[in-house]
Simulated scan of single mutants.
Amino acid sequence: MKYRTLLLPLALAACAHTPDATSPASSSAASTTATASAAPTSGAGLLSQYHWQLNNAIDSKGTRIDALFVRPDQPVQLDFSANRLNVVNSCNNMGAGYSINKGRMQIGPMVSTMMACPDPSLTALDDAIARRLRGSVSVNLLARGNAPSLQLVTDSGDTLSFTGVPTAETRFGGPGTTAFLEVAAQTVPCNHPLIPGKQCLLVRERHFDEHGLATGTPGEWQPLNQDIEGYTHTPGIRNVLRVKRYTVKNPPADGSSVAYVLDLVVESEKVGQ
């Protein structure tokens, strides 16, 4: 029995819009706030170095906005490039252009996919996000060591507070390179100095053209003696992954000098026994 989901053309299109990475934020005991005097590029530069996860949201009366917290294990997240923000962990894929000037963030029309949400609370989540991320909002960006915070205040008095989680580009100090890895349906035994009987992913590199068509010859199958960050393998499911590959500076003696971070699952197939 086989089923297959193909997302490769979408994945390749997304590659064309991947934002350039920025250098890591400097850590300092002193805190810095992006206020009305901050240059637009400085705010955008810091914003793009982090995933901004919603930790609190209250209205003008101080009441928590519960519609924004329907999935506690998947908090609403904002990702920024130089001139675009994307909403992560909503039901639909959502995004809009933005700019920052004199302490205000101007957000353009929100563009969203039209996928039907199975849970009504997820539909309400999309609506709650879209209502608050539009027009002009006050922005307060506080960089304090490795735990920056972002606060957006709407004209109606709603306050959304976010915590910054470093992106892979920030953590590894560079943009990395894009690669496609095919992951076999079943893991294989592999050697690990600290984990007897370890099972590893069996992978091979794949290549695709700009139209999403396979090109060249796939690489040789080989055990991957490390994890792919963000990827959880399900036995019996073969996947093709778009990953970012990063160089690890000063890796531990038993660690790899390369890190893999999941970008997108572009093909998935259940392989029958």
Rank of each mutant, 00 (worst) to 15 (best):
Y3L: 15
L8N: 14
L8S: 06
L10I: 13
P19G: 09
T22R: 08
S26E: 08
A39P: 06
G43W: 01
Q49P: 05
I58A: 14
I65K: 05
D73E: 15
Q74H: 02
N93E: 10
M94K: 01
Y98I: 11
S99L: 01
I100E: 05
G103K: 09
I107K: 03
I107L: 01
S112W: 01
P118N: 07
S121Q: 15
A124Q: 09
L133N: 06
R134N: 13
R134A: 14
S136C: 05
S138T: 13
N140W: 02
L141Q: 10
A143N: 05
R144Q: 03
P148V: 03
S149P: 03
T159E: 07
L160H: 06
F162L: 06
T163C: 09
A168K: 06
R171P: 01
T178H: 11
T178I: 15
A185K: 08
T187M: 12
V188N: 07
P189N: 02
C190F: 08
N191D: 15
N191F: 09
P193R: 07
K198A: 14
R204D: 03
E205I: 02
F208P: 00
A214W: 00
W221D: 12
Q222G: 05
P223M: 07
P223R: 04
L224C: 01
I228E: 04
T234E: 09
R238D: 08
V240F: 06
V243P: 10
P252I: 08
A259Y: 15
E267Q: 08
K270W: 07
G272E: 12
